[in-house]
């Protein structure tokens, strides 16, 4: 990354927060950002408690890792907001590297994502009585980080697709539910039909969920690292795909003059 890109990255981030707080009050933002993933966690944990075949901790950890995917919304929305405000043609018309710009706007939310995971685990321990007394904490921290990075990479891809099919929020919501269903957070992978199992290996959270369960039960850091490494690779592939898609779509949009139509 060049200095110019770095600068752009930070300007984008600052801009994102400024725009956000003009719109929402900081308190309101934190409330919204925290509340949504936490209540979603509570909902699935309670369904699991009601009739799930696995112990409650299975659902609690799975859904705590899903919380990291809030960052996906932020990046995908960075693009959507541009279109909503009609500023996209101007951004594209500027010489700035837009991938860096959008990524910068969203990546600050990795930070939010990690705070959310902490809150989610707090909720799991305090309200649902999750036992983390033997947990391998460095492993859990690493899992949260990998989850958040995966969310950013995936968000970048969705943002790029949203360039094409218009609706980042819709896609991100869709992706979130795919993640709820297919990463093994709520439904054990072996119960899924085989084609769905294939899909789940392609999602950048599946291995992180498995690793976090190991760490929570006191498993060795080394035992979980290969799983996390696997998700880093998957995330990188999604991120690169998003990057490539950005470039091609933009060239095409310029050629066809469809930028305005966004």
């Amino acid at each position: 990354m060049t200095t110019a890109s770095l600068r752009l990255f930070f300007v984008g981030s600052v801009f994102a927060y400024r725009a956000l707080f003009n719109w929402l009050s900081p308190g309101g933002y934190i409330f919204q950002k925290m509340a949504f993933p936490l209540v979603q966690l509570a909902f699935f944990a309670l369904v699991g408690a009601f009739g799930g075949a696995r112990p409650l901790s299975f659902y609690l950890l799975g859904n705590a890792m899903i919380v990291t995917f809030q960052a996906m919304f932020s990046i995908a929305n960075a693009v959507a907001d541009e279109r909503w405000q009609g500023t996209l043609p101007y951004v594209v018309g500027s010489p700035a590297n837009r991938v860096v710009l959008f990524f910068g706007r969203g990546a600050v939310h990795v930070f939010d994502g990690i705070i959310d995971v902490v809150a989610a685990l707090g909720l799991a321990v305090l309200v649902f009585g999750l036992d983390l007394s033997h947990a391998t904490w460095p492993g859990i921290a690493l899992a949260a980080l990998v989850g958040s990075l995966g969310a950013c990479a995936f968000g970048l891809f969705i943002g790029a697709v949203a360039y094409l099919v218009l609706d980042a929020n819709f896609l991100a919501n869709l992706a979130l539910f795919a993640i709820v269903l297919l990463t093994g957070a709520n439904v054990p992978l072996e119960e899924l039909p085989s084609w769905a199992g294939t899909l789940s290996t392609l999602l950048p959270l599946t291995r992180t969920v498995a690793a976090s369960r190991g760490f929570a039960a006191g498993g060795e850091l080394a035992a979980g690292l290969p799983l996390l490494a696997g998700d880093v690779v998957v995330a990188a592939v999604w991120g690169l795909a998003g990057f490539a898609l950005f470039q091609t779509l933009e060239t095409q949009a310029r050629r066809r003059g469809t930028l305005e139509g966004f």
Binding site: F44, V47, G48, F50, G51, G52, A53, F177, V180, L181, N186, V187, E191, L192
Partner: peptide
């Protein structure tokens, strides 16, 4: 998701 979770 809930079908899968509850059918046991």
């Amino acid at each position: 998701t809930v079908m899968y979770m509850l059918h046991h």
